[in-house]
Design a binder for these strands. Structure first.
Length: 478
RNA sequence: CGGGGUGUGGCUCAGUUUGGUAGAGCGUCUGCUUCGGGAGCAGAAGGUCGCAGGUUCAAAUCCUGUCACUCCGACCA
């Protein structure tokens, strides 16, 4: 595979940021808009999001959640009830001050997240233990007035889903928080081929207003970490501030225990940065808007080939997401490059030679490997290949992540590594916020998570040398 | 929000130092020939030089302001 084929994209190794933006623009996922910090998600990118939505939504429904919709506007007084929450979000809230020409009596926040308005409704809806649990999810947009933005990774307005649940007990809320984190992990790894590390956020890094925040952390192609999804155990912080109480079986009035959890269009950024290469996007088949593109090679027999290509298309169109590129104005070579840039997992070539042999040629985006498949075997072969690509992409990403997890015990080594190689660095940590902050100040790396699946090993804190049995992950992050 | 960079046909950029008729390549359009890894020939269209002021006989070029994008920090999904 020769990289000279791709002319429009800056090589990944040369300038990762430029490469990232090139891929987004050239693959037509998104475009800049006239509004500062806001992008347009183009049809190809939006279809990607729709496919992700479907796969997630199915999982939410399967775990008992229902979708609802709450207002975009939040009255200032409502937003201010939970002190920690306001303080966390105040710097990035956009305000509506006028309705037409009239000054509003009370400013309206454009939701940066919906805990406050949802809690307000929950206090009205929840009266009895019989009303619990409440399991609601919302698909919507939110606005955060960010200082610096980057397509998909951080934009002033973005799309997401936010789940908000209320429970009888702390245990039940904790169980829900972890259940949804696992849903995210499964979705990321199975459908996005995106390996992640599950863990808990430190107090410094947790959500404003939460008791505990759990996260899935992914590693991008340039060695920086990305928070790919979060699930918060809100405890009773919000139920106390918003007065969400129920009468329990024992006749006692109690505050509910709550959770909230979300993933965003940022995941599209993760997919680009984890899987993409110098030829452009590389999409996992489960979410690819087009899973297979048919490229007819006309030769001198345009009619014959075109008819065959159309026949194949209508045979496949109810089985997989397939597109027929029968444009006459581009040569096959041009189309190959173009569809590779757009990340289509599998290409189906059909030409005069193939028709003669009753076969088609299949070409994988992930390995570039070509195979001739007899027409009678086409559908099963396609399905096997798509499944294999899905898994292979996960394997490759997982290997990359594994190769970029390094353990150190010495602070100087840590500094060197974070600077030269980036990636995740595992190190002992005593649990103090001071040590955590020190690492950030000295190296720019943050504590990404306190992982679940690490055995307790005795050691000494990276910073203060105190005894510690906890190994945590640090990284520079987006 | 602090420091650097950039803004010129659809795209990538030259021209700015030293003010004087707005350029190239790619793409687009038309026609013919092509088609198994970015085709060839012939012809054509397309730009108030990010925006607003100012200096000047004259501004893409000089000055002031402003906006957007981008990189590095701080803040955040």
């Amino acid at each position: 595979m020769d990289n000279d084929f791709v002319k429009e994209i800056t090589p990944k190794s040369q300038d990762f940021s430029q490469w990232y933006v090139d891929v987004i623009l050239k693959a037509e996922l998104a475009d800049y808009s006239p509004v500062r910090g806001c992008m347009v998600i183009r049809p190809y990118g939006y279809t990607l999001w729709e496919n992700m939505q479907q796969l997630l939504d199915r999982r939410f429904k399967a775990t008992g959640h229902k979708n609802a919709y709450f207002p975009l506007f939040i009255p200032e007084s409502l937003l201010q009830k939970e002190a920690e929450h306001v303080e966390g979000f105040a710097p990035e809230v956009a305000w509506v001050t006028h309705g037409g020409k009239e000054l509003l009596a009370e400013r309206l926040a454009i939701r940066p997240t919906s805990e406050t308005i949802i809690c307000n409704m929950y206090s009205k809806w929840i009266k009895s233990w019989r009303d619990l649990p409440v399991l609601i999810n919302q698909w919507c947009n939110v606005v955060r007035w960010e200082k610096s933005t980057k397509p998909f990774l951080r934009t002033a307005e973005f799309l997401w889903q936010e789940g908000h649940t209320a429970h009888k007990s702390e245990e039940e809320a904790e169980e829900e928080t972890l259940r949804m984190l696992e849903v995210y992990r499964d979705f990321a790894e199975a459908d996005l081929s995106l390996p992640v590390i599950k863990g808990r956020k430190s107090d410094n890094e947790k959500f404003a207003g939460a008791l505990k925040t759990y996260t899935i952390e992914a590693l991008m192609g340039d060695g920086r970490a990305l928070q790919a999804g979060t699930s918060h155990n809100l405890g009773q912080h919000f139920s106390k501030a918003y007065d969400i109480t129920y009468l329990d079986k024992d006749g006692q009035l109690k505050h509910v225990w709550q959770t909230s959890w979300g993933v965003t269009t940022r995941l599209i950024g993760a997919i680009i940065m984890v899987h993409g290469d110098d030829r452009g996007l590389k999409l996992p088949p489960n979410i690819a808007p087009i899973q297979t593109v048919i490229v007819p090679i006309f030769g001198k027999q345009t009619e014959l080939v075109l008819n065959k290509a159309r026949e194949l298309f209508s045979y496949l169109k109810d089985e997989i997401r397939v597109e027929l590129d029968d444009r006459d104005e581009y040569t096959p070579g041009w189309k190959f490059n173009n569809w590779e840039m757009k990340g289509v997992p599998l290409r189906l070539e059909i030409g005069p030679k193939d028709i003669q042999k009753r076969q088609v040629v299949l070409v994988r985006r992930d390995t570039g490997k070509k195979t001739a498949v007899s027409e009678s075997e086409l559908l099963p072969s396609l399905k096997v290949l798509l499944g294999d690509i899905q898994q292979n992409m996960f394997k490759q990403a997982k290997n990359f992540m594994q190769e970029n997890i390094r353990q150190v015990n010495d602070f100087e080594d840590f500094k060197q590594l974070i600077d030269k190689k980036r990636g995740f660095i595992k190190a002992h940590w005593c649990g103090s916020s001071e040590c955590e902050r020190y690492v950030k100040e000295q190296t720019g790396a943050t504590l990404r998570c306190i992982p679940f699946c690490e055995e307790k090993v005795p050691g000494k804190c990276l910073v203060c040398n105190k005894e510690s049995d906890t190994v945590v992950y640090f990284a520079k992050s987006y």
